[in-house]
Amino acid sequence: MKVLVAVKRVVDASVQVRVKADKTAVDLANVKMSMNPFCEIAVEEAIRLKESGIAEEVIVVSAGEDACQEQLRAGLALGADRAIHIQSDAELQPLAVAKLLHKVVDQENIGLVILGKQSIDGDNNQTGQMLAALAGMPQGTFASNVVIENGEAVVTREVDGGLQQIGLKLPAVVTTDLRLNEPRYASLPNIMKAKRKPVAQITAEELGVDVAPRLSTLEVNDPPARASGKRVGSVVELIDALKVEGVL
């Protein structure tokens, strides 16, 4: 079975983002960019499937400008076999990415697609579900455990207040939650080797996908600062106030 892992280049989780003064976007000039943490978990899961003999090949794919090859190389360094870069300088929104990935899934005859549940920049939490819809595949989102057995992916999902276990016919799409695994570090020799591995490149046009954005961002603002509220004089007063707020 071939496993496809989609990875996204995003601002590093340690960076405090700041809205630009002109309110058009957040300022990403010279900040550290990394592989989206949920995508790292996806790569790790795929590598583990390969190590356990279930996956024959792990392919990492990313869509975007040339810089995202850096994240593909990170995926290769972690153990992916090859990488595909879908080149596009357009602003890629989840529906467009899902369409691009759908083409790759078809071309490569993929048995399992693993994606992060969401990226820490857009926080959309959509691409995996959209890809599953377009490809007519079942989806196991927010996965905290994945077992492949008898032609089925048994996925444990983190749902509100508990866990749900579902069985998915293969091929299927899985999106990762934080507790699925703890990603490994890439070793120095593997990073070095990954630099020399080829990255296949294809454009969105070549894949025949219209990636024009459906959403336009009119403005980006800082979240409103919280104002200080009311002083209460005693515990009793506090409890009364909480009851008025309807949170007790």
Partner: peptide
């Protein structure tokens, strides 16, 4: 020698431990 990665606060290896290398 590069530092070990994935040691816990007691200096014991965690699940993702990776030994450092001599360069």
């Amino acid at each position: 020698s590069t530092g070990d990665m994935g040691l816990d606060s007691e200096g014991k290896p965690k699940a993702n431990y990776m030994a450092g290398m001599d360069l």
